[in-house]
Write a protein that binds this DNA or RNA. Structure first.
Lengths: 232, 232
DNA sequence: CAGGCTTTGTGAAAACTTGCACGAGCCTCC
DNA sequence: GGAGGCTCGTGCAAGTTTTCACAAAGCCTG
């Protein structure tokens, strides 16, 4: 194998934790903490310290034995790894309830993801202004994407329209999609999709609730039984 | 080991896929499909057929070899397993942008999670009506939870207030929390928390974008290299 | 009712992720 | 400048999840 491939690969599980570490580290930095041990970080992140160390080790050896990690530098490194050194413009498809909420919610721009535009099929919605951005017709998608070099699309349409929205986004050149619709999207290889689904989350919670309930009645019937079975 | 513990345990990974299967199966049922093979279901869910079969096998042997699964029955079984045979009332903490959007969005009630109440600290918000529900003061939380036997709480507060909201929910008797705030909550054992964090999702996407960009420039520099490295 | 076709259910292998345990490096204090 | 104490980095074992691959079982056709 050649010395190094494109770059060392960071495991998915780790990638999904880096943003959490980053959030904690940034907050700590603001409070004046300049150094942290894996143990401390782990405590705040609700994970095992060994896991923190292993996760961070994928970024390189940026800790000091006997001392810990320099928060500032770690923040810098994680931001670098996550590609947060520059803003990523996003385009939102769908200006309904959700689309409006997302655009209105300042969280996008604040965190480095300015909204390059919102599009909607409905002429009723077009030209209304939400969150300081004017809703534009679907046809403008391509132009918005090109103009601001947008690579992230957010799907906030009803489920029925989501696949079509995805197709349009892909055709316009978007390579990452955040999907809020309750459907599994099919996209070409090379496009990353992440799904945020309220119903799925609630159903997972109710599974656990239902399980607890079953266990409780079971307990009452059988009487005794030590285990607790939690999730924290 | 006794004949059977509380009940056979379903792996977490499977639990998180069941809602997706359910969604697909329900949709297919509506279109008049009464039977499906693991292959078909897998195609629609975007996963491997063997995984579908193994997932479903945790529910029991409900398929017919050479034929497939009866959609109707599968829907029934999954709903049963996820505890969807009755509604689960939820209470929302925080009536800001997000809280309002969530309450207004019909998706909750439609899917079997009626909103039992919304609470907020701010007197300005109290008594306003969002999504047909009147916002009530924080102190009413306990009463709402008891009255409707609420076991699921949704945290839609700013991050700073999230831990306090969680504490209040737990004290009120809630055992499952859906957290939209960008903080890691600490809760007692026996309480399940799921987190939905826009920033985390976007950062994971930008990681992949950044990676693609790096690979592209790398390619240009090194010239050649077959792999594509996608995520679908 | 036998043979062929299909699709499930599931052992077993492979891949990935987590957690432990400990050597290695750094700092402080005597 | 050596001893002691702390905390990182990581090999390795354990646990979990995914995938493969195939026997078992049902259906259909002739």
């Amino acid at each position: 194998m050649p010395p190094h491939r494109t770059k060392r690969r960071i495991p998915d599980a780790t990638v999904s934790r880096l943003p959490i570490y980053l959030q904690i580290l940034t907050a700590q930095l603001e409070v004046g903490v300049s150094n942290m041990s894996s143990e401390e970080l782990a405590g705040l992140a609700g994970v095992n310290a060994a896991k923190v160390r292993k996760d961070l080790s994928y970024l390189g050896s940026y800790g000091t034995r006997g001392v810990g990690y320099e928060v500032q530098y770690l923040v810098y490194q994680i931001r670098h790894e996550l590609g947060l050194e520059h803003d990523w413009h996003v385009v939102i498809v769908g200006a309904g309830n959700l689309g409006q909420a997302l655009a209105g919610y300042g969280g996008f721009a604040d965190r480095g993801y300015p909204v390059a535009g919102i599009v909607d099929v409905s002429p009723d919605k077009v030209d209304t202004v939400v969150g300081g951005v004017r809703v534009r017709p679907l046809d403008d998608l391509h132009q918005i994407v090109s103009a601001k070099n947008v690579s992230i699309g957010v799907i906030a349409t009803p489920s029925e329209a989501a696949q079509e929205a995805a197709d349009l986004l892909v055709r316009a050149g978007v390579t990452s999609i955040l999907n809020f619709a309750s459907v599994v999207l099919s996209v070409p290889l090379g496009v990353t999709v992440r799904k945020v689904d309220l119903a799925v989350e609630l159903q997972i919670l109710s599974y656990h609730e239902q399980r607890r309930a079953a266990a409780a009645t079971g307990l009452r019937a059988v009487s005794g039984e030590a285990g607790r079975g939690a999730s924290a």
